[in-house]
Design a protein around this nucleic acid. Sequence first.
DNA 1: CTACATCCTCCAGTGACTATAGGAGCAAGA
DNA 2: TCTTGCTCCTATAGTCACTGGAGGATGTAG
Lengths: 143, 143
Amino acid sequence: MQHAIAIGKVSAATGVKVPTIRYYEQIGLLPPPPRTEGNRRTYDRKDAERLTFIRHSRELGFEIDQIRTLLSLQDRPDQSCGEADVIAKARLAEVKEKIASLLALEAELERMVEGCSHGRVETCQVIEILADHGKCRHHQHEQ
Amino acid sequence: MQHAIAIGKVSAATGVKVPTIRYYEQIGLLPPPPRTEGNRRTYDRKDAERLTFIRHSRELGFEIDQIRTLLSLQDRPDQSCGEADVIAKARLAEVKEKIASLLALEAELERMVEGCSHGRVETCQVIEILADHGKCRHHQHEQ
DNA sequence: CTACATCCTCCAGTGACTATAGGAGCAAGA
DNA sequence: TCTTGCTCCTATAGTCACTGGAGGATGTAG
């Protein structure tokens, strides 16, 4: 309760939007903070750090449930960090896969765009390639 | 009505799941097909082609609204394909950006995983880097 | 005292599906 | 003919991680 920070301040400090902070409290990712007499949430430095941790984890693409695990690990520093390692490695594998699929996708889009004659739709490679999957090289990727 | 294909068959043929086909009909991406006496949807070759077009577009990451535009262009082949080109180019730019951000992300995850001493959480780079944003190189990317 | 910013709760909406409940239709084997 | 089991139907709710709006209370600067 040393530094009673308002939700807007903590939002500005951490880069997490105000409704998102309330949402994180709602789903139990952030503990419910004490309130002022006027019922306003008051945060301290530790909460801000936790939010930074969450935001950074989200930026790295971790899911909320994974962040929950990561946070609980952080709370008990004497434990083995094996679980954190497993989560990070899994995410790394996902990212590598996604990069590969996006590179294939990039190649196909390049081909489409380059093939566009800027004429009628009839002769347009963009529409043509979308319509006929046989005309395309890549096959396996999502998003 | 030549080839009256059941929804399950068209699903298997195009790789679009049955509930997804019904969903596409609901949002007006696929026209409501004729029904049998027993109220079952019957598709033809043209519908299957349209579904293939949609699936391929989704695989390339186009949004439903963009696909709507792309489909309407396909329906009127005498029009200019400039719009299709714009959509494809925009998607290509997105993909390039995403690749760049994922490469940065990959680098950071590599650093985390390599830095893990497989000991206590106290000394774990994974948790450390997540907690302290200052320890990290990258700053701007989403997902 | 008066604006105005910030905060509160509650509820609904986003995109693109996916799942479930509860029932009807239909083809093939016993 | 009956039954088994598959496919199909509708309608509704759930997913993920937020985001937005309504309608009202509180706090602060001039």
